[in-house]
Simulated scan of single mutants.
Amino acid sequence: MIYTGNNRNLTIEPYEPCPCHLDKKFKFCCYQKAKKDTSAPMAKGFSLGRVNHLIREFYAATDFRTCFAFENNQCSGPIKNAHSLQNNRILNVICENGHLYYFKPEVVDSGPTSVIKKIGKNDASTFFGFCDFHDTELFKPIELFDYTGDIQQKFLFAFRALAVEMHKKLRQLENVKRMFAQRPRIMLDPQFVYMYRVAMSDVNDHQIEYELFKQGFQNGDYTGVRTIHRELQYGVKFAACSSFTVRYDINGKVMNDTFSTKNDRMPSIFLNIYPTPQGTTNILISYLNIDSEVYQNYFNSLDALDDQKLTKYLNYLVIENTENVFFTPSYIESLSENERKSFERSYNSSMNVLERASLLAEGNYYKFDLFNLAP
């Protein structure tokens, strides 16, 4: 996202905490480094292959292991590369020959983008977010049993969507801090300050949500989450598990100013869509009840839609907001050239307003259907 507006909040003020050391003031920590830094831009003159390698290497260094379980004193075993989408009950259903497709970030001649690539099933949707004990015990109600509408199952599906997103946002914040450390002068650049502000806000928002889930779990109270569940009588060829803030309601009215750099909390929704071994599809869309002022009417509108209208809306919502989504190879490979271009470009247009305008002008915006597989 490129921010081009004027906003005092896009300057790191002298007496605010320094990005590299939050208990020190910027003026007395990295400000002089930033002013004196004359280093060349990162990866200047490198080939695209080397640039992509460096980006992957740089981001890989931000990975970390933690257990997001609510009772850390019970942790046991190593931190697992846990699946946010169940390996045996979901990924097995959509994979073919052990592979899936996903959107992979890459740099091309025109700049940063994402392209459709294959990935092995065992590597899909994984993150180092739970110890061996909690990855097994905490999620037993959704790992071992079919979805029944049980309130604890709704709670756990929503929480796992938060956990994978929280891990990613913590990595993104660390990524920005590492860029600041290597090129201090970019701490004076509004574009990079905006990235830092967004990353900080995202982490703070998710930490608040995490504490609410923790409180509910420890009290044995799973009622703090509202969930819409819809079962389709056919299996789709993708699966998604994510949390994100919804900017517009179904009528195009702004609910959340997601481009703001102010300190207002951006409330999340939690989305899980997956086919079942029985040939149906479960759709779960949730939010925390403390955010009813923002999302209650929006959810009422979603709940009133019939299956056809809901899936048409979700076709847009998934691609617009979700990175943690994986597709059956035969579905991707069956797309026409025009559909595949629309698929990739529509996904990238969520971060590129010029691409969106171009797709709209061509009449090629979202010219595909993730839910068109009913027999």
Rank of each mutant, 00 (worst) to 15 (best):
Y194W: 12
M195T: 01
Y196F: 08
V198K: 15
A199H: 00
S201H: 14
D202G: 07
D205H: 11
H206T: 10
Q207P: 00
I208Q: 13
E209Y: 08
Y210T: 05
E211D: 13
E211A: 12
L212W: 07
F213N: 06
F213V: 07
K214H: 09
Q218D: 07
N219A: 09
D221E: 10
D221N: 15
Y222E: 07
G224F: 06
G224S: 12
T227S: 15
R230Q: 09
R230S: 08
R230A: 05
R230P: 07
L232W: 04
Q233E: 04
Q233Y: 00
Y234I: 05
Y234D: 02
G235Y: 02
G235F: 00
V236C: 15
K237V: 01
K237S: 09
K237R: 13
K237W: 02
F238D: 00
A239G: 11
A240W: 03
A240G: 05
S242Y: 10
S243L: 03
F244Q: 04
V246H: 00
R247V: 09
Y248G: 01
N251R: 11
G252W: 10
G252L: 09
G252H: 11
K253C: 03
K253N: 14
M255N: 06
M255H: 07
M255L: 15
N256R: 08
D257Q: 12
T258R: 04
T258F: 06
T261P: 12
K262Q: 08
D264C: 04
P267Q: 01
P267V: 03
S268N: 15
I269Y: 06
I269D: 05
F270L: 11
F270S: 09
F270E: 09
L271N: 05
L271I: 06
L271W: 03
L271S: 05
L271Q: 06
N272W: 05
N272Q: 10
I273K: 00
Y274K: 04
Y274F: 15
T276Y: 02
P277W: 01
P277C: 02
Q278R: 12
Q278N: 11
G279E: 03
T280V: 02
T281R: 01
L284K: 10
L284D: 11
Y287R: 08
N289H: 11
N289D: 14
